[in-house]
Computed example of a mutant assay.
Amino acid sequence: MILNLSAEDIAAINTGKLAVFYYNESTQNFENLAGSYDSTSNTFTFETTHLSKFVIGEADSVGNVLPQFGTFIDTTVLIAFGLTMILGGGLYI
């Protein structure tokens, strides 16, 4: 596959670490696919044997993990905190 990228698409990305990841439904993780970036044509080329959910971004220093963004707090923790605040009188409506 060949992805055409605009200057805006890669403005905040280190193109030396550019990678395409696919979402593995079995492991519930993004996995790095081998590929290459061509700065002359602003394209990223990679091979795949299946259709999937793909994400383009920077690989970490190991090169096989999509970096974590956001928070590590899951929904259960947020719900428990909210209920504690409501039952404890910490939330006034």
Rank of each mutant, 00 (worst) to 15 (best):
T84K: 05
I73E: 12
V55T: 01
A80Q: 12
E47K: 10
N29I: 02
T75Y: 13
V62F: 04
S52T: 03
L18C: 02
K53G: 01
F44D: 01
T43H: 14
N24R: 14
L83Q: 11
T45C: 02
L78W: 05
Y22H: 11
K17D: 10
I13A: 05
E58S: 03
E8H: 03
D74W: 05
I79T: 08
A19H: 07
T40Q: 15
I56H: 06
Q28H: 15
G35L: 08
E47W: 00
T40N: 13
E58A: 07
I73F: 09
F69Q: 14
T15L: 00
L66I: 08
S6K: 11
L5M: 04
Q28M: 10
K17M: 11
E47F: 01
E58P: 03
F46E: 05
T43A: 00
G16Q: 14
M85A: 15
G63H: 01
M1S: 09
G82F: 07
T71R: 03
D9P: 10
A7V: 10
K53L: 04
T76I: 05
I73P: 00
M85L: 15
N42Y: 10
A11G: 10
V55W: 08
A19R: 06
D9A: 08
T43K: 10
Q68I: 06
N14K: 12
Q68R: 06
T49H: 01
G88N: 09
N4T: 11
G16V: 09
G63V: 04
D60Y: 00
G57F: 09
V20C: 11
L83P: 03
G63S: 07
T76R: 10
S6Q: 11
I93A: 14
I2S: 11
S36A: 09
N32Y: 03
V20D: 06
L5V: 01
N24M: 06
G90D: 04
A11L: 13
F30Q: 10
Q68A: 15
E58W: 05
F44T: 07
I79A: 06
H50S: 05
I79L: 13
T49Q: 07
D9T: 02
L91T: 12
Y37A: 12
L91S: 09
E47R: 01
I79Y: 11
I79C: 05
T49E: 12
S61T: 04
V20Y: 04
T84H: 08
P67N: 08
Y23I: 01
L78K: 12
S36C: 03
I93S: 11
E47G: 05
V55C: 08
N64P: 01
T48Q: 06
Y92D: 02
N14D: 15
I13Q: 12
T43D: 07
F69C: 08
N14I: 00
I56D: 07
A80C: 08
I93T: 03
L33E: 02
Y92V: 15
L91A: 13
T84E: 12
A34Q: 06
I79R: 13
L5E: 08
I79K: 14
F46Q: 07
I86A: 08
S26W: 15
G89C: 06
E25C: 03
